[in-house]
Protein backbone atom coordinates (compact mmCIF):
# COMPACT_ATOMS: atom_id res chain seq x y z
CA UNK A 1 0.00 0.00 0.00
CA UNK A 2 2.70 2.41 0.92
CA UNK A 3 4.66 1.81 -2.22
CA UNK A 4 1.61 2.48 -4.33
CA UNK A 5 1.00 5.67 -2.39
CA UNK A 6 4.46 6.94 -3.17
CA UNK A 7 4.02 6.39 -6.87
CA UNK A 8 0.48 7.63 -7.00
CA UNK A 9 1.02 11.16 -8.38
CA UNK A 10 2.93 9.86 -11.37
CA UNK A 11 0.41 7.13 -12.09
CA UNK A 12 -2.42 9.63 -11.92
CA UNK A 13 -0.72 11.93 -14.37
CA UNK A 14 0.07 9.22 -16.83
CA UNK A 15 -3.23 7.42 -16.85
CA UNK A 16 -6.65 8.63 -17.91
CA UNK A 17 -6.99 12.34 -17.26
CA UNK A 18 -3.25 12.77 -17.00
CA UNK A 19 -2.79 11.89 -20.64
CA UNK A 20 -5.16 14.66 -21.57
CA UNK A 21 -3.21 17.11 -19.45
CA UNK A 22 0.05 16.32 -21.18
CA UNK A 23 -1.46 16.55 -24.63
CA UNK A 24 -3.05 19.91 -23.78
CA UNK A 25 0.22 21.33 -22.58
CA UNK A 26 2.14 20.21 -25.63
CA UNK A 27 -0.53 20.73 -28.22
CA UNK A 28 1.09 23.43 -30.30
CA UNK A 29 4.75 22.69 -29.82
CA UNK A 30 6.60 19.57 -30.69
CA UNK A 31 9.32 18.49 -28.33
CA UNK A 32 11.79 15.73 -28.46
CA UNK A 33 9.50 13.94 -26.03
CA UNK A 34 9.51 10.30 -25.40
CA UNK A 35 7.81 8.18 -22.79
CA UNK A 36 10.99 7.99 -20.80
CA UNK A 37 11.61 11.74 -20.86
CA UNK A 38 8.00 12.55 -19.99
CA UNK A 39 8.05 10.12 -17.12
CA UNK A 40 11.31 11.56 -15.91
CA UNK A 41 9.98 15.10 -16.27
CA UNK A 42 6.85 14.35 -14.28
CA UNK A 43 8.56 12.32 -11.62
CA UNK A 44 8.38 15.10 -9.06
CA UNK A 45 9.24 14.54 -5.48
CA UNK A 46 6.08 13.79 -3.48
CA UNK A 47 5.10 15.72 -0.40
CA UNK A 48 6.97 14.74 2.71
CA UNK A 49 3.83 13.39 4.31
CA UNK A 50 3.61 10.74 1.59
CA UNK A 51 7.11 9.45 2.19
CA UNK A 52 7.81 6.52 4.44
CA UNK A 53 10.03 7.35 7.32
CA UNK A 54 10.92 5.60 10.54
CA UNK A 55 8.28 7.65 12.36
CA UNK A 56 5.40 6.71 10.06
CA UNK A 57 3.03 4.07 11.40
CA UNK A 58 3.69 0.52 10.42
CA UNK A 59 0.07 -0.43 9.81
CA UNK A 60 -2.51 0.91 7.35
CA UNK A 61 -3.19 4.58 7.98
CA UNK A 62 -4.81 7.60 6.41
CA UNK A 63 -2.59 10.36 5.07
CA UNK A 64 -4.25 13.71 5.63
CA UNK A 65 -2.68 16.19 3.25
CA UNK A 66 -5.39 18.57 2.03
CA UNK A 67 -4.66 21.06 -0.72
CA UNK A 68 -4.13 24.62 0.41
CA UNK A 69 -7.27 26.73 0.44
CA UNK A 70 -8.36 30.09 1.73
CA UNK A 71 -9.56 29.82 5.33
CA UNK A 72 -13.28 29.72 6.05
CA UNK A 73 -15.02 32.53 7.89
CA UNK A 74 -17.00 29.97 9.84
CA UNK A 75 -13.85 28.93 11.73
CA UNK A 76 -13.83 31.47 14.52
CA UNK A 77 -10.32 32.37 15.70
CA UNK A 78 -9.52 31.50 19.28
CA UNK A 79 -9.34 35.15 20.22
CA UNK A 80 -12.89 35.77 19.03
CA UNK A 81 -14.49 32.99 21.07
CA UNK A 82 -16.42 34.27 24.09
CA UNK A 83 -15.15 33.41 27.52
CA UNK A 84 -17.84 30.87 28.35
CA UNK A 85 -17.41 28.91 25.14
CA UNK A 86 -16.28 25.32 25.67
CA UNK A 87 -14.12 25.32 22.56
CA UNK A 88 -11.83 27.86 24.19
CA UNK A 89 -10.37 25.27 26.58
CA UNK A 90 -10.22 22.60 23.88
CA UNK A 91 -8.42 24.87 21.43
CA UNK A 92 -6.10 26.20 24.10
CA UNK A 93 -4.93 22.64 24.79
CA UNK A 94 -4.26 21.78 21.15
CA UNK A 95 -3.11 25.22 20.01
CA UNK A 96 0.42 24.77 21.33
CA UNK A 97 0.75 21.45 19.52
CA UNK A 98 -0.94 22.25 16.21
CA UNK A 99 0.19 25.79 15.49
CA UNK A 100 2.97 26.82 17.83
CA UNK A 101 3.59 30.51 18.34
CA UNK A 102 6.04 31.65 15.67
CA UNK A 103 9.21 33.22 16.91
CA UNK A 104 9.11 35.83 14.13
CA UNK A 105 5.92 37.34 12.81
CA UNK A 106 5.64 38.10 9.08
CA UNK A 107 6.66 41.59 7.99
CA UNK A 108 4.01 44.31 8.28
CA UNK A 109 2.43 45.74 5.14
CA UNK A 110 3.10 49.39 5.86
CA UNK A 111 6.59 50.23 7.00
CA UNK A 112 5.86 53.91 7.31
CA UNK A 113 7.03 55.39 10.61
CA UNK A 114 4.18 56.09 12.94
CA UNK A 115 3.29 59.74 13.30
CA UNK A 116 2.89 60.73 16.95
CA UNK A 117 -0.60 61.44 18.21
CA UNK A 118 -1.99 63.72 20.89
CA UNK A 119 1.22 65.67 21.39
CA UNK A 120 0.06 69.13 20.30
CA UNK A 121 -1.19 71.62 22.86
CA UNK A 122 -3.90 74.26 22.42
CA UNK A 123 -1.20 76.85 21.79
CA UNK A 124 0.15 74.75 18.93
CA UNK A 125 -3.31 74.43 17.41
CA UNK A 126 -3.81 78.20 17.69
CA UNK A 127 -0.45 78.67 16.00
CA UNK A 128 -1.50 76.35 13.15
CA UNK A 129 -4.68 78.32 12.64
CA UNK A 130 -2.83 81.65 12.79
CA UNK A 131 -0.31 80.55 10.18
CA UNK A 132 -3.06 79.41 7.86
CA UNK A 133 -5.02 82.65 8.29
CA UNK A 134 -1.98 84.87 7.70
CA UNK A 135 -0.41 83.09 4.75
CA UNK A 136 -2.89 80.58 3.34
CA UNK A 137 -0.95 80.11 0.10
CA UNK A 138 2.30 79.28 1.77
CA UNK A 139 1.03 77.06 4.59
CA UNK A 140 -0.79 74.17 3.01
CA UNK A 141 -1.71 71.05 4.97
CA UNK A 142 1.38 69.07 4.03
CA UNK A 143 3.77 71.81 5.06
CA UNK A 144 1.94 72.37 8.34
CA UNK A 145 1.97 68.67 9.16
CA UNK A 146 5.71 68.50 8.55
CA UNK A 147 6.34 71.55 10.72
CA UNK A 148 4.29 70.25 13.66
CA UNK A 149 5.10 66.55 13.16
CA UNK A 150 1.50 65.42 13.02
CA UNK A 151 -0.76 63.90 10.39
CA UNK A 152 -2.27 66.07 7.67
CA UNK A 153 -5.65 64.65 8.68
CA UNK A 154 -5.23 66.31 12.07
CA UNK A 155 -4.25 69.57 10.35
CA UNK A 156 -7.41 69.50 8.25
CA UNK A 157 -9.49 68.95 11.41
CA UNK A 158 -7.80 71.96 13.07
CA UNK A 159 -8.27 74.15 10.03
CA UNK A 160 -11.91 73.32 9.53
CA UNK A 161 -12.83 75.93 12.14
CA UNK A 162 -10.07 78.51 11.69
CA UNK A 163 -12.15 80.87 9.57
CA UNK A 164 -10.28 80.32 6.31
CA UNK A 165 -12.66 79.68 3.44
CA UNK A 166 -11.13 76.88 1.37
CA UNK A 167 -13.93 76.35 -1.15
CA UNK A 168 -11.89 77.98 -3.91
CA UNK A 169 -8.93 75.70 -3.20
CA UNK A 170 -11.19 72.66 -3.11
CA UNK A 171 -12.82 73.54 -6.41
CA UNK A 172 -9.43 74.13 -8.01
CA UNK A 173 -8.13 70.79 -6.74
CA UNK A 174 -11.24 68.99 -7.95
CA UNK A 175 -10.91 70.64 -11.39
CA UNK A 176 -7.24 69.69 -11.56
CA UNK A 177 -8.03 66.03 -10.83
CA UNK A 178 -10.90 66.03 -13.33
CA UNK A 179 -8.61 67.49 -15.99
CA UNK A 180 -6.07 64.79 -15.23
CA UNK A 181 -8.67 62.08 -15.64
CA UNK A 182 -9.89 63.63 -18.89
CA UNK A 183 -6.45 63.27 -20.35
CA UNK A 184 -6.44 59.55 -19.67
CA UNK A 185 -6.69 57.14 -22.53
CA UNK A 186 -9.12 54.23 -22.68
CA UNK A 187 -6.72 51.72 -21.17
CA UNK A 188 -5.82 53.73 -18.11
CA UNK A 189 -9.46 54.71 -17.60
CA UNK A 190 -10.53 51.07 -17.80
CA UNK A 191 -7.80 50.05 -15.39
CA UNK A 192 -8.96 52.71 -12.94
CA UNK A 193 -12.61 51.64 -13.21
CA UNK A 194 -11.60 48.01 -12.75
CA UNK A 195 -9.68 48.93 -9.64
CA UNK A 196 -12.68 50.68 -8.15
CA UNK A 197 -14.92 47.74 -9.04
CA UNK A 198 -12.47 45.28 -7.48
CA UNK A 199 -12.49 47.24 -4.24
CA UNK A 200 -16.31 47.16 -4.18
CA UNK A 201 -16.20 43.41 -4.70
CA UNK A 202 -13.62 43.09 -1.92
CA UNK A 203 -15.96 44.91 0.48
CA UNK A 204 -18.65 42.34 -0.32
CA UNK A 205 -16.04 39.55 -0.11
CA UNK A 206 -16.95 37.86 -3.37
Amino acid sequence: MDARLVRRPVIDLLSGRGQCLISLNASSQRHQSSFRRTKQHLNIKPDSSFLISNDSPKQDHIIFNPPSASPSVLHTPLKFLPKEDKRRQLLAVTAGKLNPTPSRLPPPVSRKPKIPHHHLSDADIAEIQRLKRDEPEKWNNLRLSRKFNCSSMFISICLSQCGYDDTVTREAEKARLAGMMDSWGPRRRKAHEDKLRRMEIALRDE
Binding site: P71, V73, L74, H75, T76, P77, F80, L81, A202, D205
Partner: peptide, 16 residues
Protein backbone atom coordinates in the same frame (compact mmCIF):
# COMPACT_ATOMS: atom_id res chain seq x y z
CA UNK B 1 -5.64 44.03 3.43
CA UNK B 2 -9.30 44.99 2.88
CA UNK B 3 -10.19 41.40 2.17
CA UNK B 4 -8.34 40.23 5.26
CA UNK B 5 -10.19 42.77 7.42
CA UNK B 6 -13.54 41.73 5.92
CA UNK B 7 -12.63 38.12 6.64
CA UNK B 8 -11.75 38.90 10.25
CA UNK B 9 -14.97 40.87 10.77
CA UNK B 10 -17.05 38.10 9.28
CA UNK B 11 -15.30 35.59 11.54
CA UNK B 12 -16.33 37.78 14.47
CA UNK B 13 -19.94 38.28 13.41
CA UNK B 14 -20.51 34.69 12.33
CA UNK B 15 -19.51 33.19 15.63
CA UNK B 16 -21.84 30.32 16.42
Amino acid sequence: RTRACVHALKAWYLYS
